[in-house]
């Protein structure tokens, strides 16, 4: 066991620098469209990772994660249009706003578990969607908020604007690596282990003296804030905050990404998100039946590879290494 971990670590030593180099290289080797595809895929990768914190680690299956993604986007759009597009202002506002939302919703939703939790998160998401469509003076109604200015950082002449596809892509790469790294640190920390404990057996953990409700709330808020921040990036990329970003279908799609990639692995959902986005983008150009294909793929994973892509890779590796 020890040797295999060491071997895995040795093999993975170059994984992160290789990933970073690959991400950096994208604009040099691929066209502008692929850069935009990579941008949204990365955004969804972090969104899926943040949901994994709830689904895969804490055992809270939410069908309302789009609420934070969309809400963060609206807060960013509103702030950028009416105040400033300075990310040093916008992102803290988004983080504070989504944290507040998550505390309020979590206070209510975390009273329930299982399917009830799933339904309650769905209900909150749909209520926010309804609010976005109705509250036209603030949200722009069904057309959403268009004309979001390009984001920038800095003050006065010392500022740097993320205009253009490539600059924005690198902004997203930095944000994605930072948030991804942060989430991976979180699940590797004692806090993360406590979450897994809650998922496996909440009562046992409570009997050990853990205030499990607080842990769940912290995970819920954390996941919400990360989703809100990438939601803001998504809106800055599209320059448009749309109510559809809050719709439950988005929540369902992110859940799909988590499961296909492998819940409870962090890397898996990120991979799942990238694959699903690419699948949707390329397959839908060739066939109108892409939803059937995606559904079949999903069902196949659920039935035959519940550990997702990462689970399959691990099983194969372990089998390869097993002494003959």
């Amino acid at each position: 066991m020890t040797t295999s971990v060491a071997r895995a670590a040795r093999r993975n030593r170059w994984a992160v620098p290789a990933l970073v180099l690959a991400l950096v290289a994208v604009p040099f080797v691929l066209g502008t469209f692929e850069v935009s595809l990579a941008t949204t895929a990365l955004i969804f990768a972090v969104l899926a990772m943040s949901l994994d914190l709830l689904v895969g680690y804490t055992g809270l299956v939410s069908l309302g994660h789009a609420a934070f993604f969309g809400f963060g986007g609206y807060v960013a759009a509103y702030t950028a249009i009416h105040l400033t597009g300075n990310l040093l202002v916008v992102l803290p506002v988004v983080a504070a706003g989504t944290a507040l939302l998550a505390v309020v919703l979590g206070f209510l939703a975390l009273r329930t578990t299982g399917v009830y939790f799933l339904m309650l998160t769905l209900a909150f998401g749909q209520m926010l969607f309804g609010l976005a469509v109705k509250w036209t003076p603030v949200t722009g109604g069904s057309d959403g908020l268009a004309g979001v200015p390009a984001p920038f950082v800095g003050i006065g002449p010392m500022s740097y604007a993320f205009t253009g596809r490539v600059r924005f892509y690198y902004l997203v790469v930095v944000a994605v690596l930072a948030l991804g790294w942060f989430l991976i640190r979180v699940v590797g920390s004692p806090f993360g282990h406590a979450l897994v404990g809650i998922k496996d057996n909440e009562e046992r953990l409570a009997s050990l003296g853990y205030d499990t409700w607080r842990y769940k709330m912290a995970a819920y808020v954390l996941a919400g804030v990360v989703a809100g921040v990438v939601g803001a990036l998504f809106v800055f990329f599209n320059r448009h905050a749309a109510p559809e970003n809050l719709f439950w279908v988005v929540s369902g799609e992110v859940l799909l990404m988590v499961i296909i990639g492998g819940a409870g692995t962090m890397y898996g959902p990120a991979l799942g998100a990238v694959l699903v986005r690419l699948f949707e983008s390329y397959v839908s150009s060739y066939t109108d039946r892409w939803q059937t294909l995606l559904g079949l793929l999903f069902v196949a994973f659920v039935l035959f590879a519940p550990g997702g892509i990462v689970g399959v890779i691990r099983r194969r590796r372990n089998r390869g290494r097993a002494p003959g």
Binding site: T292, G295, L296, F298, V302
Partner: peptide, 18 residues
């Protein structure tokens, strides 16, 4: 339950398209 929820959700997606 989670597996059932996901399986039947996948079936629903396929059925909708078909």
């Amino acid at each position: 339950h989670l597996i059932q929820v996901l399986l039947t959700l996948g079936l629903a997606l396929i059925a909708a398209d078909l």
